[in-house]
């Protein structure tokens, strides 16, 4: 009852101000833009804030937030942002847009820290795979940045002119780094603990959906706006669900690779693998040729 009344109040407020709010992770804005009951979106917003508080309380109470400082700083910053945005929306609307974009870029910066933390946690214990991933990542980033600069100089793809385009490009760079990590984790079958796997998958899905939605938003504009305000909060709520499930119990996954510390000569490893592949190829040839 109270929720519904508050949601209607928000709707009236945004109507009175005569324009729509800037889209954010929160879903209380742009309510009139879609044909949904305001209370549904408001409930998703409340659910998001509740899940974020649950994550933070759990991490602080069990003191294992120190293991993933950037991740919890990120969750805390989003939580503070959402609550303050609500207050600004109700009391000082004229500051909303600037506050929203500043907040968005702060969380983008902390997000880079989260990506670094995921890299460190996943590949930190595997020096060989870690070195390979760093080299490939550096190469990919140099290629992406060079292409961006060359395109901007040629005039074929101008520098981002709006905050949405800038955010999209920065998120895309993060997405590339997470792709590199995911490829190496898959190829080298890196064992991951439940916690870091949850953080990685949740954050990666958030980045992936953000790149997708921001790309479509920058390209289609108003047409996609209605879908975006619906998609964004639901995606974020799903990501929070993944984080809550994965981070409910502490488990860092070190026991998964404790047996793997036997030192082996790399060249002999390569020889054994080559021999195995050669055998497989010989079997194939025997079947194919008499």
């Amino acid at each position: 009852m109270a929720l519904g009344r508050f949601a209607s109040q928000l709707e009236e407020c945004s109507k009175r101000k005569g324009r729509l709010l800037k889209p954010s992770l929160s879903c209380y804005d742009l309510l009139p833009a879609i044909n949904m009951k305001p209370s549904v979106l408001w409930s998703v917003w409340v659910l998001g804030v509740a899940l974020e508080s649950l994550l933070l309380v759990r991490a602080v109470a069990s003191r294992w937030w120190r293991r993933y400082p950037f991740f919890f700083a990120y969750v805390a910053s989003v939580f503070v942002q959402e609550v303050s945005l609500l207050v600004i929306f109700l009391l000082k609307f004229k500051y909303y847009a600037s506050f929203y974009w500043y907040g968005e870029f702060i969380s983008l910066l902390i997000g880079c820290g989260v990506s670094w933390e995921i890299f460190r946690q996943v590949l930190g214990r595997f020096p060989g795979a870690g070195r390979m991933a760093r080299n490939v990542l550096l190469f990919a980033l140099i290629m992406v940045c060079t292409k961006g600069v060359v395109d901007a100089c040629n005039g074929s793809a101008p520098l981002p002119s709006t905050a949405i385009e800038l955010e999209r490009n920065l998120r895309a760079i993060q997405a590339v780094s997470l792709i590199v990590l995911a490829v190496f984790a898959t190829y080298y079958a890196i064992p991951m603990g439940r916690n870091i796997k949850g953080i990685f998958v949740g954050y990666g899905l958030f980045i992936g959906t953000s790149v997708m939605t921001l790309t479509l938003l920058a390209a289609l504009g108003e047409t996609f706006q209605k879908v975006w305000v619906f998609l964004q909060p639901f995606c974020y709520a799903a990501v929070l669900g993944i984080w809550c499930t994965a981070l409910w119990k502490y488990e860092d996954g070190r026991q998964l690779e404790s047996q793997a510390k036997i030192e082996e000569d790399y060249q002999s490893l390569v020889l054994v693998a080559r021999k195995g592949l050669l055998q497989a190829r010989t079997f194939l040839s025997k079947g194919m040729r008499p």
Binding site: P127, Y188, A189, K261
Partner: peptide, 10 residues
């Protein structure tokens, strides 16, 4: 076998 052992090698 190769990747499981090579990932530990620096």
């Amino acid at each position: 076998i190769h990747v499981a052992h090579a990932r530990n090698s620096d």
